[in-house]
């Protein structure tokens, strides 16, 4: 088994570990760094629970090699806002009821953050397309979409 030193900036700090070549970024984060906020849901890139940010862009860490992203800066949910200093987006997820079981939420929050970087004031359609790599089994998405739009400053919807 080929192991090699891996240096990666994760949530702002430089992290180093001896990591096998075939380790996924997801396993590296969860098992080597014990950053378990990034979730494993599908093993094949189809659920989005493992979404992290790579230089601000969303990325599916279960189908990314830990050694495959040299020199890039990784942000996980642990770096995106923690209790006491939650981001506006996270607060909007809470206030709009955009989460239930919470398993998809870290990935959803990061994907939504990446979306707002690209499109600061997305339409409902753009939010839905923007989150289409992230699957949620609890909410039916309506409240997630609402949370993202609220965080982006869209007015409260009156049905």
């Amino acid at each position: 088994m080929q192991k090699e030193a891996l240096r990666l900036r994760v949530n702002g700090s430089l992290r180093e570990a001896l990591v096998p070549h075939h380790r996924s970024l997801l396993d590296f984060l969860r098992d080597d760094l014990e950053l378990t906020g990034t979730k494993r849901g599908c093993d094949d890139g189809s659920c989005g629970a493992c979404t992290v940010l790579l230089d601000g862009c969303s990325r599916l860490s279960c189908i990314t090699l830990a050694h495959g992203v040299p020199g890039r800066s990784v942000t996980t949910i642990e770096g995106a806002g923690q209790p006491g200093r939650l981001s506006d987006l996270q607060l909007a997820f809470i206030s709009e009821g955009g989460l239930q079981c919470g398993f998809c939420t870290p990935g959803m929050v990061l994907a939504a953050g990446a979306l707002l970087q690209r499109i600061p004031h997305p339409s409902e359609e753009q939010v839905r397309e923007g989150l289409s790599n992230n699957s949620c089994r609890c909410t039916g998405y309506g409240r997630i979409v609402q949370a993202v739009r609220r965080a982006a400053g869209a007015p409260e919807e009156t049905p």
Partner: peptide, 8 residues
Amino acid sequence: SGPTLRAM
């Protein structure tokens, strides 16, 4: 697919 996968 979707934007995350397209960015990869």
